[in-house]
Simulated assay, not measured.
Amino acid sequence: MTTHAAVNLWTVRDHLAADRDGTLRRLAGLGYDAVEPFEATDDPAGLRRVADDLGLTVCSAHSHRLLGPDPDAVFESVAVLGTGLVIVPYGLMEDAFAGRDALRRTAATLNSLAEGAARYGLALGYHNYWWEFESEIDGRHAAEVLADLLAPEVFLEIDTYWAALGGADVPGVVTRLGDRVRALHLKDGPIAKGAAHTALGRGDMPTARILAAAPAGALRIVELQTCDGDVFEALADSRAFLDSPADPS
Rank of each mutant, 00 (worst) to 15 (best):
C59Y: 04
D42L: 04
R20A: 15
G31V: 14
L54I: 10
A45S: 12
P44C: 09
A34K: 07
V35C: 11
G55L: 15
T41F: 04
G29K: 11
R48V: 07
G29R: 12
G29T: 08
L56I: 10
S60D: 09
E36H: 06
A51H: 02
R49G: 02
T57M: 14
G22A: 05
V50R: 02
V35L: 12
V50N: 11
F38W: 06
R48S: 00
P37Y: 02
D33Q: 12
E36P: 08
T57S: 08
A61E: 02
D43W: 03
R20T: 15
Y32R: 05
R25A: 15
G22V: 09
R25P: 02
A45P: 04
L47G: 00
G29V: 13
A51K: 00
V35H: 00
Y32V: 12
G29H: 08
C59T: 12
G31S: 09
A51M: 04
T23I: 03
L30M: 10
D33P: 09
T57K: 14
R26F: 05
R48W: 01
L27R: 00
R26M: 10
T41G: 14
P37S: 05
A51P: 00
D43S: 07
L56Y: 09
P37C: 04
D52H: 07
A34S: 11
F38P: 00
T41R: 15
L27I: 13
A40R: 06
L56H: 10
D42S: 13
T23Q: 01
S60I: 02
A34P: 06
R48C: 01
P37K: 01
C59E: 12
V50M: 07
D43F: 05
A28W: 10
R48Q: 15
A28D: 01
L24M: 09
L47P: 00
D42I: 05
R26I: 08
A28F: 14
S60M: 04
D21P: 04
G31M: 15
A28M: 11
L24Y: 04
L56Q: 13
A34W: 01
V58E: 01
T41C: 11
P44H: 09
F38T: 11
E39L: 13
L47H: 00
R20N: 13
L27V: 08
E39C: 13
T57E: 14
L54Q: 01
L27G: 00
R26S: 12
G29L: 14
A61V: 06
G22Q: 05
G29I: 14
T23S: 07
A28I: 13
P44R: 01
L54C: 10
C59A: 13
R26A: 11
E36K: 03
A28R: 10
V35F: 02
V58P: 00
V50D: 14
S60V: 04
E39M: 14
A40N: 06
V50S: 11
P44W: 03
A45M: 03
E36Q: 10
L54H: 09
A45E: 13
D21R: 01
G22I: 06
P44M: 03
G31P: 11
D33G: 10
T41K: 13
G22L: 07
V50K: 04
V58L: 05
E39P: 14
R26N: 07
A45F: 02
T41P: 15
L24W: 01
